[in-house]
């Protein structure tokens, strides 16, 4: 009695899983992996001090080269250095000195 139930539910799960895996590849959104990396070193407080709506938007802008590497004010020089390392650039001296 229990065997058909297990096969039925397991089989359906397997079919849906395969279809979804295929759809996920077909509709994959190309996201710059740097965005996620930058976001992981940010404080994540979404304070808005950088001038962007939140840490995610700031990470996107930095990865695209639109925002300065040292733009995260609460993160200070430490975060700026980490972001620079991820992007493979250096923190401009004038911006690190006072922050």
């Amino acid at each position: 009695m229990i065997l058909p139930a297990v096969i039925c539910l397991g089989g359906l799960g397997l079919i849906f899983g395969c279809l979804l895996a295929y759809a996920a590849q077909k509709f994959a959104v190309e996201v710059d992996p740097k965005i996620a990396e930058v976001q992981s070193v940010l404080p994540g407080a979404n304070c808005g001090a950088c001038g962007y709506a939140g840490c995610e938007q700031f990470a996107k802008a930095v990865a695209a080269g639109e925002a300065p590497v040292a733009g995260c004010k609460p993160g200070r020089a430490k975060v700026a250095a980490q972001i620079a390392e991820i992007l493979g650039t250096e923190v401009p001296k004038a911006e690190t000195g006072k922050k």
């Binding site: 539910l9 979804l20 996920a24």
Partner: peptide, 22 residues
């Protein structure tokens, strides 16, 4: 098994819609 099978179907469909809208 009706309820659980239906929820499985709906969950898969919603996942698909999410992928497409994204």
């Amino acid at each position: 098994l009706r309820t659980i099978v239906y929820i499985l179907v709906i969950a898969a469909l919603v996942q698909f819609v999410e992928l497409v809208i994204r």
